[in-house]
Computed example of a mutant assay.
Amino acid sequence: MSTPEHSPLGKATVYADRYDPSLLFPIPRQQKRIEIGVLEPLPFSGVDIWNAYELSWLDARGKPQVALAEFRVPADSPNIIESKSFKLYLNGFSQEKTDTATLRETLAHDLSAAAGATVTVALAAPSALGHAITDLQGELLDELPLEIDDYGPPHAGYLSANHNAAPVEGILLSHLLRSNCPVTGQPDWGSVQIAYRGAPIDRAGLLRYLVSFRTHNEFHEQCVERIFVDLMARCAPERLSVYARYTRRGGLDINPFRSTDPAAVPANLRAARQ
């Protein structure tokens, strides 16, 4: 069964070192989307960007190779891929002899099959990465002088916008996003950027809302979709993009992006906490 409690997450695991695509564990997106009122057609476009820092294999002479990998899973794919199963799958290449092109094709094939849609794969040598740490841009909310005592569940009632004011273009940012793995309870730490055009969003209410995820149990992708849906429902912006950059765990970071603009493509920057 493809539900979180049936995944390898939170269970003692023998780490295989040979290729095994059956290790990938897909989880349907539909159930959580129904919970937050998301039906077809989807009210957003987007992508989940995964970065893998622990990918290694053997070349034809048996010498280990390493690469940094970027995977882009479209938001309209039927499934997410459970992160521990993803790590176990990637580790399975560690004693396999292959070349870079074949490895990339194999990764794209297996991950696309698990997600139910085309997953793009890019591999780069660590020395070729080259880009500096660049945090998400925006008006930082975290210094607002607030007293907060609500840490969950997420409370959309904090969100509001001043519809008597002229529309604005704004980018709001917080590093205070925290949620928990729905299976293990382990914390997931992230930064979230909200770019919008519309009635000015109340900053204090938005920060209270984001903090109210602090004890909430939900996967990264689901949290970002919940934020997007709640902002649309409570603030009714003309345009909206929500981008979260989560910290790494198990050699993987997950960075979901959802937008009303189907042409929007987020940069895969590397934030200070990543």
Score class of each variant (00 low, 15 high):
Val73Ala: 03
Val265Pro: 02
Ala161Cys: 11
Arg273His: 15
Thr215Asn: 09
Asn217Tyr: 13
Ile36Gln: 13
Tyr246Leu: 04
Thr98Lys: 06
Leu39Pro: 00
Thr260Asp: 04
Tyr209Thr: 12
Asp59Val: 10
Tyr19Ser: 05
Ala113Leu: 14
Ala233Glu: 15
Asp142Cys: 12
Ala75Leu: 03
Asn162Gln: 15
Pro8Asp: 01
Ile148Gln: 15
Arg18Gln: 13
Arg245Gly: 00
Leu24Pro: 06
Pro237His: 01
Ala272Glu: 14
Ser45Met: 01
Asp202Lys: 00
Val192Asn: 03
Ile133Phe: 07
Phe44Cys: 02
Gln186Ile: 09
Leu90Phe: 09
Asn268Met: 08
Arg203Asn: 13
Leu9Glu: 03
Glu54Leu: 10
Trp57Phe: 14
Gly116Met: 06
Thr100Trp: 14
Asp76Asn: 14
Thr100Glu: 15
Leu111Arg: 07
Glu5Tyr: 05
Leu140Cys: 15
Asp110Ile: 05
Gln274Met: 07
Ile34Cys: 04
Glu40Gly: 00
Ala60Ile: 12
Val121His: 10
Gly46Asp: 03
Ser174Asp: 06
Phe213Val: 10
Thr13Trp: 11
Glu143Ala: 13
Ile80Tyr: 09
Asn91Met: 09
Val38Trp: 04
Asn51Val: 10
Phe228Asp: 01
Pro154Val: 13
Lys32Tyr: 15
Leu88His: 07
Ile227Lys: 03
Ala199Pro: 04
Arg248Glu: 13
Ala195Asp: 00
Ser241Asp: 03
Val242Glu: 00
Arg258Gly: 04
Val183Leu: 14
Val119Thr: 12
Gln31Tyr: 09
Pro200Lys: 08
Tyr196Glu: 07
His131Cys: 02
Trp189Ile: 12
His175Met: 00
Gln95Cys: 02
Asp253Gly: 09
Thr98Val: 14
Val192Ala: 08
Ser127Asn: 11
Glu70Gly: 07
Ala114Thr: 13
Ser45Asp: 08
